[in-house]
């Protein structure tokens, strides 16, 4: 089983609760905006501390309120692709891609720089600055940056939102490629029914 999540977090008036048990491939968290889907990804990545519950990926426990385990984000090896990209604005695309790669132990890296660039078709962008990229390009660079950090699993937050039809297709195909060719457990958040059924191996409603 890839993902085993049981999370409770109170954020002001709203209570975010999620129970996910997912196997291989893409597990989709599906639900309306405001249901706390991004909070779930943040809790899995270690950016937000759950009040209660556990986060297990594969055989490893990343968080468990019962035993007091709480790995810092840099030790969770999550490949987190944020909805807004969050590329480093002061670095070139190439430096963005290398950021996680340089920090990953050699044995943790499972994909080469050249392979990622080819997989995502971003070779012509390497010297550019993030602010000069289109939305679809930035999203693909963010996926590449996450892959190169040697992650054990991927977290994708609305990977095709705010993109026009052509760009959506471009990014959806990149996600399918990653899913089919790299065999990495993926937790994907979306509020789009078509995207959920197209990309997901299973769907968890929130």
């Amino acid at each position: 089983m890839a993902f085993d999540l049981s999370l409770v977090k109170r954020r002001g008036e709203t209570l975010v609760a999620a129970h996910v048990e997912g196997g291989e491939g893409v597990t989709v968290l599906f639900g309306p905006s405001g249901a706390g889907k991004t909070s779930v990804l943040d809790m899995v990545a270690g950016l937000l501390r759950p009040d209660e519950g556990h986060v297990r990926v594969g055989s490893e426990t990343l968080f468990d309120s019962a035993t007091g385990i709480d790995l810092p984000p840099e030790r969770r090896r999550a490949g987190y692709v944020f909805q807004d990209g969050r590329l480093f604005p002061h670095m070139s695309v190439a430096a963005n891609l290398r950021y996680g790669e340089r920090r990953a132990p050699v044995e943790a890296r499972w994909i080469e720089f050249g392979a990622v660039v080819e997989l995502l078709g971003i070779g012509h962008l390497l010297a550019r600055r993030p602010r000069t990229l289109s939305g679809g390009e930035a999203r693909r660079v963010a996926i590449g940056r996450a892959l190169l950090s040697g992650p054990r699993f991927l977290l994708l937050d609305e990977p095709t939102s705010f993109l026009d039809r052509a760009r959506r297709e471009e990014v959806a195909r990149a996600v399918e490629d990653v899913r089919d060719r790299l065999k990495l457990p993926i937790l994907l958040v979306t509020h789009d029914q078509d995207e959920a059924s197209r990309l997901g191996n299973r769907i968890v409603k929130m």
Binding site: A45, G46, L47, P72, P73, E74, R76, R77, A78, G79, Y80, F82, D84, R86, F88, P89, Y99, G100, R103, A104, R145, A146, S149
Partner: peptide, 18 residues
């Protein structure tokens, strides 16, 4: 400075000081 960008750096393997 957007603290969420720092969060992104953390998920990519950078410790606090890094």
């Amino acid at each position: 400075v957007d603290r969420r960008v720092e969060g992104a750096a953390r998920t990519l393997g950078a410790g606090r000081l890094d």
